[in-house]
Design a protein around this nucleic acid. Sequence first.
DNA 1: CGGAATCCTTTCCGATACTG
DNA 2: CAGTATCGGAAAGGATTCCG
Lengths: 157, 157
Amino acid sequence: MNLTAEQKHQRRQAAYNAALEHCPARQLLETISSKWVTLVLLELAEGPRRHSELRRRIPGASQKMLTSTLRSLERDGLVVRHLTASVPVRTDYELTPLGRALLGVVYGLKEWAEASMPAVELARLEHDQLAADVSGTSATVATIPATKWNNFSHIEP
Amino acid sequence: MNLTAEQKHQRRQAAYNAALEHCPARQLLETISSKWVTLVLLELAEGPRRHSELRRRIPGASQKMLTSTLRSLERDGLVVRHLTASVPVRTDYELTPLGRALLGVVYGLKEWAEASMPAVELARLEHDQLAADVSGTSATVATIPATKWNNFSHIEP
DNA sequence: CGGAATCCTTTCCGATACTG
DNA sequence: CAGTATCGGAAAGGATTCCG
C-alpha cells in the first residue's frame, strides 16, 4: 500500500488537528467565540439572573442555544447554577470569579476591536470596490451607518 | 393576523441578530475565531511566506481552507498578497501593520488562556465526575497529559 | 418555569478533479 | 505552483413539541 503525496499530507493533517485540540489557547478561543457566550457573561456581570430573564435580555438566542451555552459555561466553572426546588422551579445563574476574569479579557478584545474596525472597514471597501471594478458590474457597496452599531453597545466595560 | 407569544419572540430574535451583525467587537471575534487565522498570522509573523510554505507549516489546514483564510485576511487588510508573474507563478503573503496589531491581541489572549486553563480543566473534571456519579456507569474520565499541549506551542509571542 | 427531545434546514468543510 | 469548481457528508442550530 503506497500512498500518494496527497494522501501523506492528509495523514499529517489529521495528526496536526488532533494535537490542536489540546492547545489551551485554542480551547479558550473556541469558548468565547461561540456566539452567545459574551452576551451571557455581560448580562451576568450585573448580577445573578434567572433563565427567563436571560431570555428576555438576549432575545437573539433561541431557548436551545441559551441552555447549551449556559451548560457549557457551567461545565467550565465560569458560571454556577442555583436551583430552587419550588413549583414552578426557579433557577438562577451567577458568575464565578473565573467567569469575571474572562469578562476582563472580553473587554480588552472589545477595546481593540473598536479601535481597529474603521481601518478594517476601509480595507474592505477598497477591496470590494476593486473586485467590482474588475467584473464589469460595478456592484453597489452597502454602506452601514456607524450609528447603527455604535449604539448597539452590547459590550460595555 | 395575531401572533402567539412565541412568534413575537422570534420577531425580536431576528431583529436582534440583524443588529448584532454590525457590532465591530463581534466581527473581530468572528475573524480571529475562524480556526486557521491565528496559525496563519503566527507563521507570517516571522516574515513573508509563499503559499506552499504555509501549507507545509500548517499541515492541519486543507488547501481550500488555507486559501479562503488568506482571502478573508486580505480583504480585511491584515495581509497583503504579492504576485510574481513567472512560470510557474509565485505568490507571497505578508502581514500589514494592522495584521501585526491583531497579532498582539492574540498573544494577550494566549497568556490569559494558559493562566486560566488549569482552573477550567479542574472544573471540567469535577463537573464530569459528578455527572458520571449520577448515572451509575462511572465512566472513566480521559486524562490528557499536560505535556501534550504544553509542548504544542503554536502560539508564541 | 426550565428544560429535554425531536425534526429538519442550513452552513461548513474535506475530498476530488480541473485550469492557467 | 497556486489556485477554482463542484459534490457530499457531518455538524450546528432553529422550530416545535412534550415533560416534571
